[in-house]
Simulated assay, not measured.
Amino acid sequence: MTVREDDIRRPDGSTGIYGVVDKPEFALVIVADGDRLQLVEQFRYPVGERSWEFVQGTAPDRADVDAAELAVRELREETGLEAGSMVELGRLSLAPGLTSQRGRVFLATELREGPPQREHEEQDMRTEWFSREKFEQMIVSGEITDAPTIAAYGLLRLRGR
């Protein structure tokens, strides 16, 4: 991750400074088994609370890794699952007013179980299956607030899945 301040010139000719956070592309994986969706829950330091989310992450040590390869890696790492089918659903810009980071959204199905291979900071992560109805209720109630998770679910629904 890098943080930079760019000198900019606006369309009216005035100048300013724009702060940008550069991070590598992320992969987000929607794990689905019929009507069930698997989420991970972990503590998110910047907001100071635990967060229910779809599997997601980056490979900062290998920023040039292919998004599909990254999705497979994140799925295995966070859940231990392997997918017989991994379909790309679309692309997201994380927070385009703040960061250059973008991500790709994948749907994982035809799942095989295995042991998670979590990173050190993911030690307290847990997984749980939810029905789509319960998942939607969690969004409405504010229990799920992770923007990429909510946007990815929108892609899933718009693709008729």
Rank of each mutant, 00 (worst) to 15 (best):
S93T: 14
S85A: 12
G84Y: 04
K23F: 14
Y153A: 01
Q123I: 14
V140E: 04
D35Y: 06
D35V: 06
L89T: 02
Y18P: 13
K134S: 12
V3M: 12
R159D: 09
M1H: 14
E128C: 11
F26P: 08
T79M: 11
Y45Q: 15
G160K: 01
E110A: 07
E133G: 04
V21G: 13
E5P: 13
S14L: 11
L98I: 13
D33I: 05
G13V: 13
E77G: 00
F135L: 09
S85H: 00
S93N: 14
G80L: 01
P148M: 04
D66L: 07
R50N: 15
M138V: 02
G154Y: 05
G48S: 10
A27C: 11
L111F: 07
Q123S: 14
T109M: 10
Q137I: 03
A71R: 03
T145M: 07
G80R: 03
A151Q: 06
S93Y: 12
G48N: 06
F54Y: 01
M125E: 04
I150K: 00
L89I: 02
T58R: 11
F43E: 01
E78V: 10
D33A: 13
F130K: 00
E113P: 05
E128I: 08
D146R: 04
T145V: 12
E128L: 09
R157F: 03
M86S: 07
G160M: 05
L37R: 04
P148Y: 06
A151H: 00
I17N: 05
A71G: 03
E53W: 01
T15P: 13
W129Y: 01
P115S: 13
S51F: 08
G160I: 04
G13I: 14
V87R: 08
K134T: 10
R132Q: 08
H120F: 04
L28D: 03
E119G: 15
V72F: 03
L39M: 09
V55P: 13
